[in-house]
Design a protein around this nucleic acid. Sequence first.
RNA 1: GCCGGUGUAGCUCAGCUGGUAGAGCAGCGCAUUCGUAAUGCGCAGGUAGGCGGUUCGAAUCCGCCCAUCGGCUCCA
Length: 616
Amino acid sequence: MKAFDLIKHNQQIAVLCNNHLVDLDQEISDDQQCKPIDFNHPLGKDVYWHTSAHILAHAVLNLFPGTKLGVGPAVEEGFYYDFIPPQPFTPEDLENIEQEMKKIIEENIEIHRFEKTTRETIDLLNEQQQELKIELIENFQEPFSFYQQGNFCDLCRGPHLRSTGKVKAVKILSVAAAYWKGDEKNKSMQRIYGVSFPSPKELKSHLHMLEEAKKRDHRKLGKKLDIFGIYEEAGPGLIYWHKGGTVIRKEIENLWISEHRQRGYNFVTTPHIAKADLWKISGHLDYYKENMYLLEDGQYVLKPMNCPEHILIFKNEQKSYKDLPYKMAELGTVYRKERSGVLHGMLRVRGFTQDDAHIFCTYPQLQNEIIEVLELGLGWIKRFGYEKFQLDLSLRDPGQQEKYAGTEEDWLKAEQALASAMDEMNLEYRRMEGEAVFYGPKIDFQLQDAIGRTWQGTTCQVDFNLPRRFDLKYTGADGQDHYVIMIHRAIMGSVERFVGGLIEHYSGNFPFWLAPEQLRIIPITDNQHNFAEQLKNKLIDQEVRCTIDKRSEKVGYKIRDAETSRVPLMAIIGEREVESESVSLRVHQQGDQGTVNAETLVGMCKEKIEEGRKPL
RNA sequence: GCCGGUGUAGCUCAGCUGGUAGAGCAGCGCAUUCGUAAUGCGCAGGUAGGCGGUUCGAAUCCGCCCAUCGGCUCCA
């Protein structure tokens, strides 16, 4: 029988045999484990979106004959197709393309697969004048498969849906440039992104979700909640922390400092500039120069990293094995000359503060140090409400060992220490072959936020390179000198990026201990202003960040203002409350909570603050 | 850096094919003293991102620059 025969109803769109997608026309035998899947299966989405990409290309060729096709895969949130059109697409073109796609879907054209030899493939692609596709087949072996739908035919591995009508709801999302084969030396193409679903309802809810995500954008909320600003006249990529952001930042820094103090880190403070000589030794001047700001005709460098400066302090005194592990921490502000097109709010900037630390240790100490870093990282992300995360262990590319610093033994020991640290903690992780930086293997946390986006969290990297460049040695119990092992680690990465991520994760609704304004007192009339002042003083005595809204507006107005400003607590005070020395408590997004005694309120606030600030 | 889009009042945005700038919110003033998401009236606010060009005339058309958005590439 054919795979297609397994499909029993409309929702099923593809067939898996031995966990691989097969073409629906393929003959299958009984000994294969075959089952039909629907859109909700990740591979089902793949097929669905891949066919949608073909429909997109079909539509583009119908409207813009002569367009060259690149590649058009399914991606995590939909699909794209790369084109070289006769003219760049305009926004109106995109609308027309979407309409044309809908037409192709309505026609419900059957999709067929056929195979060709190399010779035939080249002939066919030449006939279609799709030269880029000919470049593509160089990496594959014959026979080559094609998928045909009406007058459109595309070189493609497949599989695909049975017909274009299976796609029920489609939306073009954006157009952007992309380089052919992802290499900026190659020609630039126009990439159209889209998404599709088996029902208009699902499409609508997906688009709604995208809208909601936009509302969380830290750039938008950052402005609205007075968290940060970037000033054109002062330069792009440079963050000005406003009063709200500075409150958040200081709370986070305080927690960070106390956690590191408890773990025996030594705090240091280092200058923002250093002579080029230092960066020559570290190697940055050779391989990182295009990202560095040079001063005084290149004699000085605005630091892009803290490590060389920390190393100087470490080296200042001769170290013995008794001094190790030696842990050095700094909230160190660095500057990197990022390309203009990559800047993005607080997430990608030119000046940022790394929550940096360097651990100098011996091989036997390595694993425990890694465990301590991972534990700190886990506690940290939990405190900030991240529930899901993924650990990645980046390893060498076994194919090209020559590009790495350090000896074979170094790598084995370090990779072993990183892996067994995670094993000991019963943490699951992905092994990422070839993802390691040249100086050593590392572990990264990938955090997932409240709406499923991922953020880079804690990172823990072993470095074999700098200890050798700076000749970092300690005297062992054997009286001999040995190279120290250096760990670079950051719990947040950078304060800017972490806070930018937090804004979106919390959607601006910060937990009480972080909220820039924690409580707003709302007197109903001027008669309550005295009592409001007394209450405010009591709250401020307990370090509660609170204000009084004395404007001559109605309560409804003041409440609305406090709600849209995302103030966690509102204390409404009228005549009744003054008499009973209480407040009418309202919780942000939850509404009226009834009457609470004023003293109780102060205690509650104090407790909530302590809860947020308590050790991890 | 590259491709495309955008840049009008503090914010969000209108302004047809060139005829000399407008709304809501915020702000300020006055009135109002009010019970859980917007009280009314009034006032003020703009070198239209910058520079140059076309034109009798430019927010509008053209060029360059800057910033920004979506991506590519790179990254904390």
